[in-house]
Amino acid sequence: MLRLIIAKDRILVVPQHPGETDGATAANPGFVWPDGPGSIPRPSVVAEWKD
């Protein structure tokens, strides 16, 4: 699940379950975000502010 929150001065992106896709397993995740190949997918928060 991906949540995208947009406000006047910031944006938040919250991938809550990045490896959870059809056919994915613990040994073969659907995504390997945020660390790339060979890693376990992790929930994260990305925030960006406007000056």
Rank of each mutant, 00 (worst) to 15 (best):
M1N: 12
M1H: 14
M1Y: 09
M1R: 14
M1K: 11
L2P: 03
R3K: 14
R3G: 13
R3C: 12
L4A: 11
L4E: 04
I5W: 04
I6V: 15
I6A: 14
I6G: 01
I6R: 14
A7R: 14
A7W: 05
A7M: 09
A7Q: 14
K8C: 00
K8R: 15
K8I: 02
K8Q: 15
K8T: 11
R10W: 07
R10A: 08
I11M: 11
I11V: 15
I11P: 00
L12I: 12
L12W: 08
L12F: 10
V13D: 01
V14F: 03
V14K: 06
V14N: 13
V14G: 05
P15D: 04
P15F: 05
P15L: 04
Q16V: 12
Q16K: 10
H17N: 14
H17W: 07
H17V: 12
H17A: 15
P18C: 12
P18M: 09
P18Q: 07
G19L: 02
G19D: 02
G19M: 01
G19H: 03
G19W: 00
G19Q: 04
G19N: 06
E20Q: 09
E20N: 08
E20V: 12
E20R: 09
E20M: 06
T21L: 08
T21D: 01
T21A: 04
D22T: 15
D22H: 02
D22S: 13
D22L: 14
G23Y: 10
G23I: 03
G23V: 02
A24E: 01
A24V: 04
T25N: 08
T25S: 15
T25A: 08
T25K: 01
A26Y: 12
A26K: 13
A27E: 14
A27Y: 01
A27W: 02
N28L: 09
P29T: 04
P29M: 08
P29K: 02
G30F: 00
G30L: 10
G30Y: 05
F31T: 09
F31P: 02
F31S: 13
V32F: 01
W33A: 11
W33K: 00
W33V: 05
P34Q: 02
P34F: 06
P34Y: 09
P34N: 11
D35H: 12
D35I: 03
D35L: 13
G36P: 08
G36D: 01
P37C: 00
P37Q: 11
G38E: 01
G38Y: 09
S39G: 04
S39I: 00
S39V: 07
S39A: 09
S39P: 04
I40T: 13
I40A: 13
P41E: 03
P41M: 07
P41N: 10
P41W: 05
P43M: 06
P43Y: 01
P43K: 02
S44D: 10
S44V: 13
S44T: 15
V45S: 04
V45E: 01
V46R: 07
V46E: 07
V46Q: 03
A47R: 07
A47E: 15
E48R: 14
E48K: 10
E48T: 11
E48P: 05
W49P: 02
W49I: 06
W49S: 12
W49R: 15
W49C: 03
K50V: 11
K50H: 09
K50D: 08
K50R: 15
K50Q: 13
D51G: 15
D51W: 06
D51R: 13
D51M: 08
D51Y: 07
